[in-house]
């Protein structure tokens, strides 16, 4: 196909040029990762619609598969849910009584409602990180929908992670199980503060590791772990998971725990983004 007379640049020159280009890009984006923003926006206008379409196809298939499977289970589940509903009705009555009492006591103590309902935006997961090393997701809402950097993300009532990059129409979420994530958390029952560490190694077993718990903390299996007030990224009071094992660090100062997260990180389809940002006091 080569036209005679037309000069062809040898492949090795192109390769060396591209190598230098890569090295240059690495250095440039290390110094300032915002340089690539315009390119990223441009490319995302091509990729995002395809990703969304592909997801819809995938969901359609899995819905059909689920439907077949579910028909059989549905009746059984209905029975179970009816029984559960009765129980819940009863519990609800007690809970509403307790809430009334709580409000009364709050008024008495002039306490603010600490765990207010946060404003949320629903979003769909449209992409996942390409390798197996990290746990990063893309959602289909971005700046234009009111998503901002550092907003917390929840799913199934549990903490997923926080927004680490926002594009015009998409955002990237780094999960709490990502290998270099750290979340400051506390135990709901005892208010002991600890650190939730994302680690690839632990997540294989379906758990996350919690470190830096005071040795005197009265923590037991089944305790609820929630985000703490002192975290600089996460709003307080979001459920993370339940303790399923405690172990002594052997240094007479701290102990560690294993926590089973609420969120099923491998099966996420829809997430809620909390649009209220954590107020850290620094500008």
């Amino acid at each position: 196909m080569k036209k005679p007379g037309k000069k062809v640049i040898p492949t090795k020159y192109i390769l060396s040029f591209l190598c230098v280009l890569c090295a240059g890009l690495v250095v440039l984006t290390m110094i300032n990762s915002n340089i690539a923003r315009p390119i990223r926006e441009a490319v995302s206008t091509i990729i995002l619609p395809v990703q969304k379409g592909m997801n819809q196809i995938g969901e359609w298939f899995s819905d059909k598969a689920d439907m077949l499977k579910e028909l059989a289970d549905l009746q059984e589940e209905n029975e179970r849910l009816k029984a559960e509903n009765e129980e819940l009705k009863h519990e609800n009555v007690i809970a509403s009584q307790q809430r009334a009492e709580l409000e009364r006591l709050r008024e008495l103590l002039e306490l603010d409602d600490v765990y207010a309902d946060y404003p949320k935006i629903a979003a769909r997961v449209i992409g996942k990180e390409t390798g197996n090393w990290f746990s990063i997701f893309t959602i289909d809402k971005g700046l234009s929908d009111g998503i901002g950097l550092g907003m917390n993300v929840i799913s199934d009532g549990g903490l997923v992670g926080c927004v680490t990059y926002v594009g015009e129409n998409y955002a990237k979420i780094t999960t709490i199980i990502n290998d270099d994530s750290n979340v400051s958390a506390k135990f709901a029952s005892t208010s002991d503060v600890c650190i939730v560490q994302g680690d690839l190694k632990n997540f294989e077993s379906g758990m996350i590791r919690v470190t830096n718990i005071n040795i005197d903390a009265n923590v037991k299996e089944g305790d609820m772990l929630i985000t703490s007030q002192i975290s600089d990224k996460y709003v307080p009071g979001i459920l993370i998971g339940y303790v399923s094992g405690i172990e002594d660090d052997g240094n007479k100062l701290t102990k560690s725990a294993w926590v089973t997260p609420i969120v099923d990180f491998s099966q996420m389809e829809e997430v809620l983004v909390i649009t209220q940002l954590k107020v850290t006091g620094e500008e």
């Binding site: 591209l18 890569c22 984006t29 490319v43 990729i47 990063i136």
Partner: peptide, 25 residues
């Protein structure tokens, strides 16, 4: 480059591009 743009390690672009390019070559 596509992988780097959207899922690059700490938003650094070029690592995956370099690796995949060398592999392709």
């Amino acid at each position: 480059i596509l992988v780097d743009l959207f899922y690059g390690y700490y938003d650094v672009i070029g690592i995956n591009a370099f690796l995949y390019m060398i592999i392709g070559f």
